[in-house]
Design a protein around this nucleic acid. Structure first.
Lengths: 208, 208
DNA sequence: CGCGTTGGCTAATGGGCGTAGCTTTATGGC
DNA sequence: GCCATAAAGCTACGCCCATTAGCCAACGCG
């Protein structure tokens, strides 16, 4: 009985293939059985290389988060201000287009209490830091930076998830809409940075 | 052997309970076995009232979408402009807070081709129409309305999903951040509506 | 060469969905 | 009041998946 020559990394690699081949649902539909089939191996054999399906998912998600972060980082080196923000958003969206299954893996928030989720947690924090670094260039007051980061993340992530989920009909205009969103975010962040602060949010009354 | 007195609606109601009790993961973890247990009935008995788990999920999602739409609608009656947009966003987010599991159900995009998804499709379109109606009040040019709708949906939906997924640490400031986001959206849409259109998006070069 | 480690395997358990077919309950017409 | 029939349960089963246990063969180092 010949050996398949698997390894931890090989299994993860195959899992990534399964995820990639499954489109948007690739991550949700990731299954040990599929990985085993792709490896030409019985399903239980995978346990020699991987702790559980949950572990494998965690690892795939970790890779995905790091890849988005890397894409965002490398897209923004040498850029600043609106230029950098546009590059960040476009890189983020491009990654999601190129790897919809992996991007979906990104959406599973790590458990703040589970020690096994420490790495994913750190990776997520790192990806947020990239957004923060780009927004630093706008000269925001310290107490507004977090609001700006959240707005940008919400806008870009929300757009991408809606788009991948088929939430936008009339497909043609989506690029334009994303450009408009980025422009709105740039304008919003810029306004937030101006000392006169027209966007100063009246906390009372606007919520609940 | 006494009868449980189930019905289609009763099963759906129990499914909603299961979803509600499961928190954010309630919808993902919805299972016929759990519904059956809650009904005090063997799992196969449910098939007398429901076609399949997929059908039940579809129905739960449909209800959730309609509820968000209703919340958004009733929050915006009698309001216009920035006021209406704030009310819309806050109602949307409040619904997600009150029913995280149901809101998660909302995120599964209906299959554009599946005839069984016709109702969910229509319900989703209706919810988009509410956003559109609110944005009409800003006097946008026709060809910009769709961009504005998408930006608002992306911002609000993205914020809520990130929040529910535990994407925001430092919980205290989240309300403030959401207020800032809404202000940014208001400002962005307003600018988009002004004839001089400083936000006119330069299509070339900003994407990819 | 030998032997331990390692990477496969099969078998089996448990849980979930879904189908088939049986039985009992409720109901409504006579 | 009786009985036929439809509706609402049930058990038994098949299939798919994850996971555990325990076995055996291959590889690699001495």
């Amino acid at each position: 009985m010949p050996r398949a020559g698997l390894s931890h990394d090989a299994v993860v690699r195959l899992a990534l293939e399964v995820v990639d081949e499954g489109g948007v649902r690739g991550y949700a539909d990731l299954t040990l059985a599929k990985v085993a089939a792709k490896a030409g191996v019985a399903a239980p054999s995978l346990y020699k290389h991987v702790g559980s399906l949950a572990d494998l998912r965690r690892e795939v998600a970790l890779i995905a988060v790091r890849e988005v972060t890397a894409a965002a980082t490398s897209a923004t080196v040498g850029r600043a201000g609106p230029d950098a923000l546009h590059a960040l958003g476009s890189a983020w969206r491009s990654y999601a287009h190129a790897h919809p299954g992996r991007y979906a893996a990104t959406q599973i928030g790590p458990d703040p209490d589970d020690p096994a989720d420490a790495e994913p947690r750190a990776a997520a924090a790192e990806s947020v830091r990239v957004v923060g670094a780009v927004l630093q260039g706008f000269g925001l007051p310290d107490d507004r930076l977090i609001d700006a980061i959240r707005a940008v993340r919400a806008g870009v992530h929300g757009f991408v998830t809606l788009e991948l989920g088929g939430g936008f009909r009339m497909r043609e205009d989506v690029d334009q809409s994303f450009g408009v969103l980025l422009d709105m975010l740039v304008a919003g962040v810029t306004t937030l940075a101006t000392p006169s602060a027209p966007l100063d949010h009246d906390t009372a009354g606007s919520l609940r």
